[in-house]
Simulated scan of single mutants.
Amino acid sequence: MAVTDLLVIITAVLLNRLPAIYFPGSLLSITPVCSLSIALIYASRDTSIWLTVAFTFDRFVAICCQKLKMKYCTEKVATVVIGTVCSLGCLINIPWYFMHEPIYIIDNIPWFCKLRENRYTSPIWAAFHWIDRIVTPSVPFFLIIFLNVLTVRNILAANGARRRLRVHTNGVAQSDTEMDNRRKSIILLFTISGSFILLWMMYVAYFFFERFVKDYKFKDFSDPKFIFLESANILQLLSCCTNTFIYAVTQTKFREQLKNLLQHPLL
């Protein structure tokens, strides 16, 4: 998850946004390179999101499915899942490479990227665009919320049974470290769901606005539609960073390994 989130920052910010603003006309602005960069952005973004879904499912199995846990929550299965998600994330985003055309051709060299005009009229491209938005982020929306709700329900049921057992055994309700940890898990799960939904909501809203209004032109950089789009892009890129931070930094083992890395960087 950390690696794919870092790839989102590298491809979307370091190789796309910053060169376009501060180094226009560089080799990164040649149309084939620009198209490849855009395809990599979508591939790394989708991989990041679906690894978050896979991690959410892994937590669900570990907490709610004790019989399946022994078979599923293993290093071998994790490797297969990660490899599958990364491979599919790259394959399904190959069409983005062919969706752009040059803005200028100077000395037979194509420069910069713009969406092909038939992207707005072709049924094939329209279908691909809808599928892209369904696969990311609509389905992850549903899966993350659904799995987290089931996990939280299981935790609450276990807490209720544990509380009744402790009261029956000791006669009074006492503080319980295990239940405190479970409450922290509930807060963590809701934070993940809420963060994902809020940061992607504007991106999804812009997609429906664009499709139903069918107004694809911007007057200038102060056009409200342009501001709307760029704000949506900023938030959805930010989403690829927050999930790893929330999941990983809250884990004790991750903090221990990070501390060891800082203390012994060459080991």
Rank of each mutant, 00 (worst) to 15 (best):
L88M: 15
N93T: 13
C64A: 15
Y42S: 05
R59K: 09
Y104H: 13
C86L: 09
G89S: 07
L68P: 07
K76R: 15
S48R: 01
A62G: 01
Y72M: 01
V81M: 06
E117D: 15
W96M: 14
Q66Y: 06
V85E: 01
F55R: 07
D58T: 04
I63F: 08
R116N: 04
L51R: 00
A54G: 14
T52N: 08
I106Q: 12
Y104M: 11
R116Y: 00
Y104I: 06
A43E: 02
T79A: 15
N93I: 03
P110G: 12
S87K: 12
F57P: 03
H100C: 03
N93P: 04
P123W: 05
T56Y: 02
V81Y: 01
D107K: 15
L115Y: 08
R119W: 08
P102I: 10
C113E: 06
Q66A: 09
I41R: 11
I105C: 08
W96E: 13
I49E: 02
L115R: 08
N93A: 05
T121C: 02
Y120Q: 05
V85H: 01
V77H: 10
R45N: 07
I106V: 15
Y104V: 08
V77R: 11
R119A: 08
P110T: 12
A78T: 15
I109M: 03
C113Y: 08
W96P: 01
N108G: 06
R119K: 05
I103V: 15
R59W: 02
Y120M: 04
D46G: 11
C113V: 08
A43I: 02
I63T: 13
A54K: 05
D46T: 10
I105G: 04
E101Y: 04
K114C: 06
C64M: 11
I94F: 06
T56H: 02
S44M: 09
T47P: 00
W50D: 02
V85M: 07
D107Q: 15
Y104G: 01
I106H: 11
P123C: 09
N108M: 09
C90V: 15
K67A: 14
I94H: 02
T47H: 02
P110R: 10
I41K: 10
T52D: 02
T47S: 13
M70W: 01
S44I: 04
N93D: 07
I49M: 05
I105F: 07
L68A: 15
T121P: 03
A62T: 04
D107E: 15
K114H: 10
L115V: 13
Y97D: 11
N118D: 15
L68K: 14
G89N: 04
W50R: 01
K71N: 05
C73D: 08
T47L: 02
A62W: 01
T47M: 09
K114E: 12
Y42R: 05
E117G: 10
L91C: 09
W50I: 02
P95W: 09
T47E: 00
K76T: 14
R116D: 00
Y97R: 11
R45V: 06
L51E: 08
S44K: 03
